[in-house]
Design a protein around this nucleic acid. Sequence first.
RNA 1: GGGCGCAUAGCUCAGCUGGUUCAGAGCACCUGCCUUACAAGCAGGGGGUCGGCGGUUCGAAUCCGUCUGCGCCCACCA
Length: 879
Amino acid sequence: MELNSKYNPSEVEDKWYAYWEKNRCFHSEPDSREPYTVVIPPPNVTGILHMGHVLNNTLNDVLVRKARMDGKNACWVPGTDHASIATESKVVAKLKGMGISKEDITREEFLKYAWEWKEEHGGIILQQLRKLGASCDWDRTKFTMDPELSKAVIATFVHFYKKGLIYRGVRMVNWDPEGLTAVSDEEVIHRDTKSHFYHLKYYISDGKGNPTDDYLVIATTRPETIMADAAICVNPKDERHFRLHGKKVLIPLINREIPVIEDDYVEMDFGTGCLKVTPAHDAHDYEIGLRHNLPVMDIIDDHGRLNEQAQILVGQDRFEARKNIVKMLEEAGNLVKVEEYTSPVGYSERTNAVIEPKLSAQWFLKMDELASKALESVESGKVKLIPDKYRNTYRHWMENVHDWCISRQLWWGQQIPAYYLPDGKIIVEATPEEALKAAQTLNPAYTAADLRQDEDVLDTWFSSWLWPISVFDAERPGHPEHKPNRDLSYYYPTNDLVTGPDILFFWVARMIMAGGEFMGDVPFRNVYLTGIVRDKQGRKMSKTLGNSPDPLDLIAKYGADSVRIGMLLCSSAGNDIFYDESQVEQGRNFCGKIWNAWRLINGWNVDTKGEQPDYALAAVKWFDNLLSRTITEIEDHYSKFRISDALMAIYKLFWDDFCSWYLELVKPAYGCAVDGITYEATVTFFDKLIKLIHPVMPFITEELWQAMEKRGEGESIMFQRTPVAGPFDQDFLGKFALLQEAIVNIRAVRSQKGIAPKQELDLYIADGTFDELVPVLSKLGNVKVFKGKFEGAATSFIVGTVSMSVALDKFVNVDEERAKLAADLDRQRAFLDGVRRKLANKGFVDHAPEAVVAIERKKEADALQRIDALENALKSLGA
RNA sequence: GGGCGCAUAGCUCAGCUGGUUCAGAGCACCUGCCUUACAAGCAGGGGGUCGGCGGUUCGAAUCCGUCUGCGCCCACCA
């Protein structure tokens, strides 16, 4: 088949992806083969493909395609995550655009809009993944809010509730005033933020609510919360404040009287040693409040605005109120001074709003027991983290875990199956019907109208932690007594999980917990943690910075294979990825190389009766051995998840070894035909090479494999077997490497002396070490080879221990050659000295293993031989 | 503040159990080539005190200590 002179990726990629999908090449069903399973880290249903996804899914696809070609039953389950906060805020925004406020519509109406939105805009990313070449089993696509997956989530809640691990309680939680929901500790990101430290005067009360002349000074970063103060706290040992014990002070501006209390919590040497206690708006203050029975006064509403309780600045946003109250305090004479201050502030992971500590009733899952089991799974090596360094981080987290706040004040998600009875009792059952039945066992008079379901939904991670189970068998979570279905028994546990370290705790750890709870086994064997994709300057790629290229643009420009290569080239596990477009260009260049190599082979005239020349015989033997050795290396890299090393090994094998050496060697002279044996061998090599390349570059390899000969409908390179390494002759490969060195030397001589490649030179070789490879030398070096020493003007070099001389009567400058040889001789003598010093060292000879000493002795002998050869060469130059 | 990790060529990184001629790779760079697969290419070449200091060892890029400079995770001294 004729090939275009240029490779056109976009045409080829669309064609083959459509072909793969039409023939359901990615679909997997349980059978007698060994399974290889991965589940996709479900991207947000609202998401669009970014470079992080590209990295992640490329790695995943490489592993899946490799496993498939290794003969395993590969199954990669795709899907999306309902992402409650992100999706809900998008829907709210859309409704706002339509003039509809969430408060004005019912839950049912809102959900109708949300589902419409999801059907319309959701899952774009799954289309985009196809462009990348991801070989997902699309027939198995799941969504975390699919009816059966939601059922699994509800069942899980009921399971843990009845087990006593889920409880409802009033706690200080992280409130997101933008998302209007509580979030878990893990969803709060602390960032050092510049702010101010305001020193405020609180006058001591005379006991009747009037200020005296005496005052104390507190330091706060949040002056807008003073109206919620319940006390001033000092350290009982702090002598400076003994006079305050038992006194009351007045809150500035509103003159409310609050007591001075004593508690060890207060550090004497921080701030002024006086702490204002605001139980409603600070987690520590809340604790102090509990210890001292202080009232809780909440002055901030869900949106982060001051409410009626504040008395002043009512309705203002907390940050606006802060500015204003500072002015008021200054005017009132309560402001002593303002300091610049940097302190960590919590931000919502989803909305980036400043988190407001807020007291509210939420649902929690006890983590102690689950976490210790999940820790054990990793410590024992049942789950391997790659790279290993994350074990430490993981351990630290699992040992310091807090109960998980699982309720969210949202509508998009699985509604908590808790039902309140009129008397406040809580019934937890999977469905309203079951709940009613349970209620009626308490009092048969209850009707459905007496049950009020909890308004909140569950944290999205509370559904994604079931993902590796529920995508196969949604009946199982919450029901460990259920027999796993056929899919689950076959595919679980999955093999590898590729994901970012940022969700190690959010997701990975919790999947391990759920796996232990419902399957009694870990959900995966290996977790490959990728780095974060950064730009050339080391900045994290983000939409706001605008430094992230659109992967689809890149794919359109360079082709998906090139983008995959660009990503993989710089992706050693666990290290951040410094992305640069030049790497994608390298991928594109590699496509061109592969393409042209086939064009060359494909264009040869073949003489089936022709005799195989000696150089071709040697070339085939060499590449055959080298292929085996390199496959061994590649397999080793894969087994250790060194994907970029595996790629580099393949890359060099193809480009340097196959193209630059092998093809140059066997390629017939212009107008001549290649013999049949060499041709067949070359085609076989090419076939093996593109099979090795397929997992990293699926498209171009499919195109060429299909171009090589007519294939049947539905056939694909992806179902071919990975080439296996045979035994290889290390000595022969070593000898060939030396020969390559000789050829490089000859080329260098030409280059330095300006001798055209076409001009044949005479080469003298001292002995018969390379006899078998002389035809190779002649062809690639364009030399006529003579055995023995050359007497006359020549340039000489040592290959291994063999001296070679290029006769150069016409070109050589004897002085230059002499100087070169002398320099080389000096180097060899210095080397010999070093080796001899080592061997003369009794400590070395006595302590070092015999093999190491033997190597040194060999070095000594070789060096002596080389020195001898160099001396002879010098002599023949008349030195 | 606590914990973990990193530092090797201009850039990105390998270097696994301390010992092969170990100081490497890719990219970038320099020189010469439009050689009939490929200029997105071919051939050749330069470039590093392995962050500093000290130690262990016959032997250290590799192990230990320490300092410096980065990065990450955890932690609300208000």
